[in-house]
């Protein structure tokens, strides 16, 4: 036996690799800088360790639920949809959602246009409305290929866009953030907003996917 636990339960396999500790890799320059600045700000009383922790917790707790509620409302209320397409932050306030200070715009999918969002320079993303970006959104492959061959990227996400539809790629590299207002799925006539919101996923608000089908 190479390790001594549970040997009498027939747990007799060879040595296996352990999952590496988070600390197994050396800190990168920016990780070290982030820790150092955080510690200095706490030491100087700019904020407390608990405030920093609470902020991280609040950021981690963001989810696509807020964005999904806004999409569902837009599907049920044309006047709200018009306001959402003008200014997402203001429209969010109507639903008691804090979309933050960075201006966010919604782009609408129609029978003729499919929108997809990328930030080629970094990973800009409307976090307050759809949560933290997935790792793939930040990857070099997604950032470079979505502008170069968007239809192939979409196909890899399982999203086939017909040849006669315009694929419109939005590169959010400056001061605004973008979210997709997907089209309301067929077969949802008469559904209420809560049921509709359940069909709205993070990925369909990035534009790499479509809303779930009713009954799926």
């Amino acid at each position: 036996m190479t390790h001594d636990h549970d040997s009498d339960r027939g747990h007799d396999h060879g040595p296996h690799p352990y999952q590496p500790d988070l600390e197994a890799a050396p800190l990168t320059h920016y990780q070290a800088m982030t820790q150092a600045v955080g510690e200095l700000l706490i030491e100087k009383g700019v904020f407390s360790a608990d405030e920093l922790r609470a902020m991280l917790e609040a950021i981690d707790a963001k989810s696509p639920a807020a964005g999904a509620r806004m999409v569902a409302r837009a599907w049920c209320d044309d006047a709200f949809k018009a306001r959402l397409l003008t200014d997402v932050n203001k429209a969010a306030e109507e639903l008691g959602i804090d979309a933050g200070a960075i201006p966010i715009r919604a782009v609408e999918n129609t029978p003729d246009v499919h929108n997809v969002i990328v930030c080629t320079l970094c990973s800009c993303y409307p976090r307050l409305l759809i949560g933290l970006p997935p790792d793939w959104y930040k990857s070099r492959a997604y950032r470079s290929r979505t502008v170069r061959e968007p239809r192939r990227v979409l196909a890899e996400f399982g999203t086939a866009i017909p040849e006669d539809v315009e694929v419109r790629v939005h590169d959010s590299t400056a001061d605004l953030r973008y979210m997709v207002l997907p089209a309301r799925p067929a077969g949802t006539e008469g559904w209420d907003e809560t049921a509709l919101a359940d069909l709205v996923t993070r990925d369909c608000m990035i534009g790499v996917s479509l809303p779930k089908s009713p009954g799926a």
Partner: peptide, 22 residues
């Protein structure tokens, strides 16, 4: 026009790319 941004773009001719520029 996305087809004007890339040599040999494989998508559709009506595809577009929007970028915010100062």
């Amino acid at each position: 026009e996305t087809a004007e941004l890339w040599d040999g773009y494989q998508g559709a001719p009506q595809d577009t790319t929007l970028v915010d520029i100062y």
